[in-house]
Nucleic acid binder design. Structure first.
Lengths: 247, 247
DNA sequence: CGGGGGGTTGATCTCCTTCAATCAACGTGG
DNA sequence: CCACGTTGATTGAAGGAGATCAACCCCCCG
């Protein structure tokens, strides 16, 4: 985090996620309340933010970077159940421990609120609670969308679906047009993609190669992806919803 | 619905889901408001409650019976993304169409509210919105739990997991002790189970037979299941969480 | 230079799907 | 009352998509 970033982060009105996070609906006085109880925390790539089952004394928003929510079985099988991007919220009111591991996959900055004051706040100010309900409903839709991917799609379709999701987000954030070639960096390793998709990392690697050989995507290095024709990728993903690329 | 059921359903204070549904936190005056805008609808087994994409002019709670939330791809592959039991809520404020098909799998009675008045109500009375947030968070947890099942469990583990979920619900509803043998009727056909689990109906049938032959479950007819030893079934489900049978 | 993390590719195996036959239960109409 | 069709379920045989095991590459860093 540069000195300038640090400066930006002290004032809510300059916050990069001001218009999308839990606080987006707040009136100025509500924002003052939130501002008085907030603090920032930084995590390095690879660092665990919260361990599954551990006590969690805060909730908060991802300001920058990417984190994952994962579940692990006793024998080591793991499934990613959420991908946390800037403006996404971590933690739930009314529960003091996370049932998932939260791991930073890139460097992450979070805007945190201590849980107790936050919980009283959402019972008293409706705008935060309303926004939180909206965000939770969106998360639920995303989770259900993902259940279709996990349960019914082939490995190739899974990869295509994941690439589309990342492309969509990126283009929404960067303000691309949604037309013409799209290109972005994969924030996830092959293994993390496998954990998201319910596959092995070998299968992920093979299917990415296959999509490359088919000309649906092209790679520079291992991580930078270019999509010459988004419609072709949507075809591969078997996305019935036209999806509305920019949604 | 018998005449007595009908009578019971006219008054919120006698409602069987009074203490678990969206209305469970309401003060008497809030309940009066809700009561003034509610109406009941019945659906027969097999009937579609809402078609994916269609306009939805109401939201509401399942009072009795079982319904499913499913997604279907163009080529016919379908994935169940939710199982709706008594007290579960359908529809979301702020959106006028469902992205999923809602289908009654048994006869279903719903307590409905017209969407417009309900939406103004939740912006004005905090208790309904708070309860809705809680329920949505629970749904999200359930969806994420299910992502682990879909992504990482074997067919046998999937079947065991589904049986456990149904057993848990049933025993919570019926007020069983959670100890000793548990027995219940499957509300779902083999095909519906397959759609829930991301399997084929043949695999479902085979794995149920396998669990029966292994003595983990026993069947009377095709639908009535008895579980002599719940711990054994949890073992088969590879449920890391002790699960706390009664949660 | 060694070592380790991340990635690719190959060979083999296996679990689940696919296709198909059969069965039991049930209703319906002649 | 029985032939017939339908629906839900079971079981078998064969094939395939993805897992598993393993070798190897690239690049960065100490």
């Amino acid at each position: 985090m540069t000195a300038q970033d640090q400066k930006l982060l002290t004032d809510c009105s300059d916050c990069p996620i001001r218009h999308r996070a839990v606080c987006s609906r707040c009136e100025p006085n509500e924002l003052d309340l939130l501002e008085s109880m907030k603090y920032y925390r930084s995590f390095e790539a690879g660092q665990t933010v919260v361990w599954s089952g551990d006590r969690m004394d805060f909730v908060g928003s991802v300001v920058s970077g990417v984190a994952t929510l994962t579940q692990t079985m006793e024998d080591g099988r793991t499934q990613m159940v959420g991908l946390l991007l800037p403006s996404d919220f971590i933690g739930r009111p009314g529960r003091d421990s996370s049932p998932y591991d939260v791991v930073a996959v890139t460097d992450v900055v979070m805007c945190c609120f201590r849980r107790a004051p936050f919980e009283t706040l959402i019972t008293e100010t409706p705008h935060v609670a309303q926004r939180l309900l909206q965000m939770t409903l969106d998360d639920l839709d995303a989770a259900r969308e993902w259940m279709l991917v996990l349960g019914r799609k082939t490995a190739r379709e899974k990869i295509a679906s994941l690439l589309l999701i990342i492309a969509r987000r990126d283009s929404a954030l960067q303000g691309g047009t949604g037309l013409g070639p799209v290109s972005f960096d994969l924030p996830l390793t092959r293994e993390a993609m496998a954990d998201y998709l319910g596959l092995t990392l070998e299968t992920v690697s093979r299917q990415i190669s296959a999509l490359r050989k088919a000309g649906v995507i092209s790679l520079e290095g291992k991580r930078h992806v270019t999509i010459p024709d988004i419609a072709a990728l949507m075809e591969e993903a078997a996305d019935d919803a036209d999806g509305g690329f920019l949604v």
